[in-house]
Amino acid sequence: MIPFHLCAALALLRPTLAASEKKDPPPPDPCTIKNSKGSFFNLNPIAVTLPDPTSKHKDDVVESWTAKGYDYPYNFTINFCEPVVEPLSEIVGVDESLWRNVSAYYTKNSRNYSIGQQNSELVFRGRKLVLNYTGGSPCEPSSSRIKLRRDNYPHEPEDISHGNRDGYGGDDDDDDNNDNNHDDEDRPRKGGSGEKNVRRKSSIFSFLCEKDPLASKAAVSFVAASEDECTYFFEVRSPSACAGINHAKEQLSPGGVFGVIVLITILVYILGGCVYQRSVMHQRGWRQIPNYTFWASIFSFFYDIFVILTSSCARFLPSRRGYSRVSMNGSAGGGGSGSSGRGRGRDPEDENRLIDQLDEEWDD
């Protein structure tokens, strides 16, 4: 019998399980993010990775993304959410153990300068999708920045370099003094990344949605560098920066959703029917099940089908062999011993002989 408290427990089972399954949402996958409206962004398609050594395309040439400096004297090599695939050596001011994690760099006088370590955490600045790299090579000292600025912009008026802002001197003698005053800055620049109080290069990437179906996977443009040559700004146009659907996190397919709806419908039918049959119809035991007669008839129908099939298949089973009729010849089947079974076990000739004998005795 199904007690009433069992039906009530089944009715409360689903909300209890749903409450127990509520957990903190898992962290997003690397290089993915959702905005405040729930739109999903995935930049993994533009992250360049080395091919698997066991794959058929292991010999294909793989290169990181590049950005031209144009009026800036250097070009940049960049990867998104992953380190650059090019082998690097002698990264200025970065420990050798961190060379493999450099995600953006440029080359100056045959020396590589990092402008950021690997980072796969995307952020939103308002409606702008942004990726930030930090922990690059140490920033250049003030005297080097002045010389670099004059080399890059020879037509710029000289008087903008005068003043006391950010260590810019007024003449060459002041530059020489600045060189001496910044000896302490030069030392950490030559050291590793573990030294403290060292300002390091960083880069900021702003991603824009590219809706042109014929456009490349990504187009990287250098925008500007900060005045102290310590922060670099880039703009990236890519179809991957457009909002999409999180297929990786989609738990149920359309068939699964339909199955859940059917399951909920069955639960409501059974639980609601149990409550109605017990409270209104005053049924007990198995008769609390809704439409008990209908389901019982279906069970009887399948039971009869099972019996018919099993009985029909029994005739095809092999019969037991090795049995034969035992003849009562010899002492057990003598003609005068009619009391031993009344001819049971005799062969046909003995039976005929006995019948003829009885007929003769009857005639006499």
Rank of each mutant, 00 (worst) to 15 (best):
K190P: 00
L131C: 12
P239M: 06
I245E: 12
T231I: 02
R346P: 00
Y303E: 07
A241C: 05
S226M: 05
L88W: 04
V220T: 01
P25F: 08
R189V: 07
Y269E: 01
L267C: 08
K249M: 14
S39E: 12
G69P: 00
G273S: 11
H282E: 10
F76I: 09
T134D: 14
A18S: 10
F205Y: 15
S240Q: 04
L17Q: 10
K217L: 14
A47I: 02
R200I: 02
A314R: 14
R353P: 00
T54K: 15
Y113W: 11
D175Y: 07
E140Q: 09
Q288C: 15
P26K: 14
H162N: 11
S203M: 06
R127W: 00
A314C: 13
R344V: 03
S103L: 00
G194N: 12
S142F: 12
F302A: 10
F124I: 06
A18F: 04
T310A: 15
R199M: 06
D356W: 03
L263W: 09
H5E: 15
F207A: 05
F233K: 06
I115P: 08
R199F: 07
S253N: 09
L358G: 08
N44T: 12
V275M: 10
K23L: 08
I204N: 14
S110A: 14
N329R: 11
D186A: 08
I146K: 12
D159F: 12
R111E: 13
S221R: 09
W286N: 01
K34Y: 14
P141N: 15
N180P: 00
F299N: 09
N246P: 03
N181R: 09
I245D: 11
L309R: 09
L88Q: 02
C31R: 02
R111Y: 08
D359C: 04
P154T: 04
S331V: 06
A218C: 08
S97G: 05
A8L: 15
R325T: 02
Q251G: 07
A67W: 01
F233I: 05
T107W: 03
W286E: 00
A215S: 15
S337Q: 05
D175V: 09
L12R: 04
H57C: 11
F4S: 15
L358D: 11
P83H: 09
R111M: 12
N101F: 11
G69Q: 01
E121C: 14
P154S: 08
V236F: 10
S253A: 11
D172R: 07
I261A: 15
I91L: 12
Y153H: 14
